[in-house]
Amino acid sequence: MAVEAGVETGAEGSTLLVYTVSYPLAYFAERIGGDLVRVEFPAPPDVDPAFWSPDPETVAAYQRADLILLNGAGYASWTDRVSLPSSRLVATAAGVADRYVVVEDAVTHSHGPAGEHAHGTIAFTTWLDPTIAVEQARAIRDAFSRARPQDEKAFDEGFAELERDLLDLDGRLSEIVAADPARALLASHPVYQYLTARYGLEMRGVHLEPDEPPSRAAWRDLQVVLEEHPARWMLWEAEPLPATASQLRELGIESMVFSPAGNRSADGDYLSVMEANVRRLATAYRGTPER
């Protein structure tokens, strides 16, 4: 049993202490558990949690949790390099492993007797497909119900509301893309694989950082891509530098932020960030903001 900040956790009938490795999971857990759970997501707000690593003290805090929500699909690889109690781990995307997107251009290497192996061959932003997000939320609901069977009804209600919101998001995205399924798009970074897979987007990825001016080689690579993929919109994880946006505009490409919502945002929660994403995507597809 752990007692922290005056909130008793860990004991039967008390608040369930839940640690997560990503913000979307924290949001889902908060929506499903409400006041019955205390959700902690300790990654600092200014880092990408996919590549963040906790210090031993933070790992110890994870170890004290009643449940530790993992994303799966290789997200937060730091979990492979620390000791966590396996009986309290919940791999939320394990049930949809057959829908994992394999990254074709991952770097592989081989040396010694163990032979060839690759790193990061599976795309991990699973929650960008709202139907996968529903399955992850369902896994969270099931884990909560197993840990606190007496509160199962409340967890079911929290999940039902969240599922409604996520499926609504899915419906709106489908509707937007259906208006012009062949529209060519560019992704500044390879993080939109699940969005692409779910809605059949015509999207090609390049490697540009929003906070760094692209190199000459990057501009040349972009020109090559544009020759066979004449996109007019580029999706960014965050607002690009004004100079980059301006240079892109000269090439006839408009910039649009589609936040992966991987971390807590000052602009709102997961749902409001995704709704803003939907509105901006509607602009790209229809030229006018979505309702």
């Binding site: 770097v107 290497h109 081989s110 040396h111 010694g112």
Partner: peptide, 18 residues
């Protein structure tokens, strides 16, 4: 320690420092 590169594939020998 790198014997060769083929696209995204890097082949190294066992002398790579572990």
């Amino acid at each position: 320690g790198v014997l060769g590169r083929e696209g995204n594939r890097v082949i190294a020998n066992a002398s790579v420092v572990q």
